[in-house]
């Protein structure tokens, strides 16, 4: 399964990259699985996640080609 992963704001600084391609060779992959692969840590509750530009949660099951974005709480307006 090929995924495009994006990081924004303080999380981009922390990860040291704004985006990357990630391939995972297993049947079922959730957002939480992906986060563990890219960070070696459980997904903190404070991090927001969007799949294909829609908010979702850690249990969301991914499919090949998905764009997954991780970011900190939003501060616009």
């Amino acid at each position: 399964m090929d995924l495009k992963v994006r990081y924004f704001a303080s999380l981009r600084d922390r990860m040291g990259r704004s985006e990357e391609k990630v391939s995972i060779d297993q049947g079922k992959v959730t957002v939480a699985d992906l986060w563990k692969k890219v960070s070696n840590a459980p997904l903190p509750e404070t991090i927001l996640v969007a799949v294909n530009m829609e908010y979702t949660d850690a249990a969301h099951e991914l499919k090949s080609g998905d764009e997954v974005a991780f970011f900190p709480p939003v501060t616009g307006g």
Partner: peptide, 14 residues
Amino acid sequence: IINYLKESAPFWKC
């Protein structure tokens, strides 16, 4: 609109 924009639209201030 302004409340939910501030609460949930993906913007970040540095």
